[in-house]
Design a protein around this nucleic acid. Sequence first.
DNA 1: GCACACGCCTTTTTT
DNA 2: AGGCGTGTGC
Length: 699
Amino acid sequence: MKDFPLRDLNPAQQEAVVYCEGPLLVLAGAGSGKTRVITYKYAYLTKSKGLLPSSIFTVTFTNKAADEMKERIFKMCNGNWKNTWIGTFHSLCVRILRAHIDNIGYKRDFIIYDDDDQAGLIKRILKDLNMHEALCKCVVTKISNLKSNLITPEDYISNIEGYEFEERLGRIYMRYQNELKRYNALDFDDLILCVIKLFNENEDLLRRYSEQFKYILVDEFQDTNKSQYMLLQLLCRYHKNICAVGDDDQSIYKFRGANIHNILNFEKDFPDTKIVKLEQNYRSTKHIILASSAMISRNTMRKPKILWTERDWGEKIFYCQLNNEEEEAKYIAKNIKELYLKGDYEYKDFAILYRLVLQARALEEALRMEGIPYQVISGVSFYHRKEIKDVLAYMRFILNKEDNVSLMRIINTPPRGIGASAISKIESEAKKYMISTFEAIKRIIKEDTVSATLKEKLVSFVTLIDELSEKDYKDAASMIKDILNFTGYLEEIEEDRIQNVLEFLSSAEKMPVREFLDKVALFSNVDTWENKKNYVSLLTLHAAKGLEFPVVFIAGCEEGILPYFKALEDPFELQEERRLFYVGMTRAKNLLFITSVKQRKLYSKVQKQETSSFIKDIPPEYCICIRKDYSTFAPNKKEPETSKIKPPFVIGCKVKHPTWGVGVVRDCYGEGDDLKVIVNFPGIGIKKLAPKIVNLERV
DNA sequence: GCACACGCCTTTTTT
DNA sequence: AGGCGTGTGC
Ligand SMILES: Nc1ncnc2c1ncn2[C@@H]1O[C@H](COP(=O)(O)OP(=O)(O)OP(=O)(O)O)[C@@H](O)[C@H]1O
């Protein structure tokens, strides 16, 4: 224990790290160092308790968080271990299933269906049952909720009371599971459920893994669902060495099945749980902590918490109401620019948070106008783009001819004249003979039951697939290359999509095909976050969980947006919206800006907006109202763009100063004698200079 | 009859 | 940005 850096932790954290005699729950507010406890505990277990890295099962919320944790731990322990078990529930489960899923009747090369694929399959089933495809979304959520609550189709069907919709849902659910199995595919929920099933049906395997995993660590425990909790309980059947950390005030994924009772009932399910509370916040200023704590305390059904800090008061929270979303975006962009030019912050220190993905548009536009580099982290993630999913569907179908969802995606992509009527012919053939869709195509060709032109098209499709299937690909990239060459896909799509596909291709280099597919399936938005690059981050409040930024903007704090209008009636959902706002506020280290607008264009209507009721719950002494009016800036031209007329000093160019030497120009403004240039001199800092007074040489 | 291109509509949050 | 429905052209 001698070289273990316990001094980086406060006494409560130390207690949580060294306590290893049974279940431990760290229940604490935002920024109190919960994640740090997990990281240090891992290091402590290996260094001081002699546990192998492979014997600590560590669950994080995102892959990104897992990577960062690994990096920290490796640094602390001077290790670079191969065999660690640090990851999300889903990726850890995939790893177990790849080794043993044959025990429960799947093949080990199963594929993972993401929500698109899931929706694709549900749509097909709905169509087949003559039901409206618009029900798809609703059905997908319902089924996912049933699954994350460990309710099988059989359970569900035997418990329904005969309402028509329930009865149909039961049939769809049953059918859905059967089809998945036939395709050798698992959806996200199955990944967890199958491990539970595996352990329940194979006591010896459970025993083996419980012996291997001597300790279980869980971060962001408040957002686990019932099945994930069940899995943890199974892994703890033979020992109670589990440490879960979380904050009930930050539970924001109920819509995805997260169950806040997991954290509230932990003590009951694990008798003799030790509870550690962390009360010192290391992240934020006093103003931010007091304001957010007061705001969240308006929720009922929560465990009260104390949070304090040694940091000073800092600035008050800035609140500003603008006229519309464009002005809001402009206000945010201007503030970022101003703070950046003052030199205290880099672009990567800023985050703009919002409730709805569609809010990002106006923000992006304003940042572009100001020439501020940014990255959008929420929204359609890279691997979900149509052009990427199309190529992925080829890859998966080549590996697995049972995968009807992927087949449906590629059968006429790029367009090859196999349209809706041809497809329905194929489908009915498949149904009639109980064969896979691809078999059905082959049968149609053999039996010669369609027109010559269609037959020809089908033959060339089958040939294409057969050719692609023959090769032994050395990595995912070479497979993608073949797909692109053989199908001519790139010729059919626009330039920016081509760029995406090429980027996709290069990300596949030297990756084994199946490993690549797994990685892609489990990839999330936040995983694309480049926290080392100097970009302003734009992300949803959900995606911001667990992150921190020196300067945070929360945009669109209006009734109907935050809280979202669909949550207004249900008090539980309303409380979740408040937690979402709490998560947003507590991401800020130094400065917090909150904005709302008077009217907003939403869903192609202009609406009058009221300020969010949550803002009224921030005590006025912690907050100042900024009055800004951007409406005088005509939207058509001038004013902010004077920066265009500034000959010699362009942002990014290098200049030489008589005393400070060479520096990089960060910005300049003003004209003629008033011209000011902002320069960053390495090692010296940022200076505002007037070329009229001091001689600045371009180099 | 069938496929495809264009334009209109809608968008909570996501592993 | 993507899905869906409609009109056009083969
Ligand atoms: N004992 C400590 N001394 C100094 N800094 C600390 C200490 N503990 C945590 N920190 C810092 O405080 C910040 C918040 O820590 P961490 O992310 O672990 O908190 P958390 O409780 O997981 O937060 P949240 O629940 O809001 O995601 C981090 O920047 C971390 O480095």
